[in-house]
Amino acid sequence: MRGYVTRRVLALPLIVIAVYTLVFFLARSSPGGPWDPNLPVPQSVIENLRAHYHADEPLIVQYWELAKNIVLEGDLGPSYLAMRRNVSTMIAEALPISLALGAASVGLALIVGVALGVIAAMRRNTSVDYASMGLVMFGISVPPYVITPVLVLVFAIWLPWLPSQGWTGLFSKAAIIPVIALALGPAATVARYARNSVLDVIRLDYVRTAEAKGLPPRVVITRHVLRNALIPIITVAGLYITRTLTHTFYVEYIYGIPGMGRLGVDAVFGRDYPVILGVSLVVAILVAVTNLLVDLTYAWADPRVRLR
């Protein structure tokens, strides 16, 4: 077990280095450059710009220099497009917004998903169960770039209750649509896991005993079933956290939220290499750390999982 943990933790930087390498060369191989002269610009101006950003140096030198700066100073270098601001600063501004959005929607997804799953499991094979699972299938199938505009259409345009775009903080009306749009998918996944694991747990002896003892169903559910049924839900956390990260790209882009997703999409369209690289690295680290934490927790919680 300890060997496994050490190996997994040591593998983390290797993954990050590999991601850095992959993204660096992918981004640099895309056509186009960062400068958009509307009108003729003298060649010497372009040369100066290239020199300023070290774009005139061999790729391998750029690769190494940037890596050095990132590791030693946490400095991702200047952005090409956004005011030549430092990418680290831009990410530092965008990341909290995406994290707030992500945490809120994962939290909402857990609550709604567990509730829905438990209800479906308790009313197994009734219309309530079928309706819940239909809802779940819907949640799993409808992508964020469909649900976000539809929510905007219904709740911001037809019924003008909510803003149709923008970000004014997590505790404002503007956060409702993006949080719901992001929570839908994970909530459905959680509900499915919750239903299955509740059904698994219900069959176990101690639950039957508790029922036989005549404990009221609510007590059985909260005290015996839920507690154990939650474990598998937690262990798939990596799955829906990663998905939420991906979905922020669409939701932030559509809803105009200045988070990591929009930063990434804008950077790709503007060929802002340093930002592309920064966003990818941060996202990759988040994914890797989440997965590691989830795996370790899972292993630790359930000794039946044998890790080599």
Partner: peptide
């Protein structure tokens, strides 16, 4: 993850 996020969003 929620902690710092909330404060900065305010």
């Amino acid at each position: 993850a929620c902690g710092p996020a909330t404060s900065s969003s305010t």
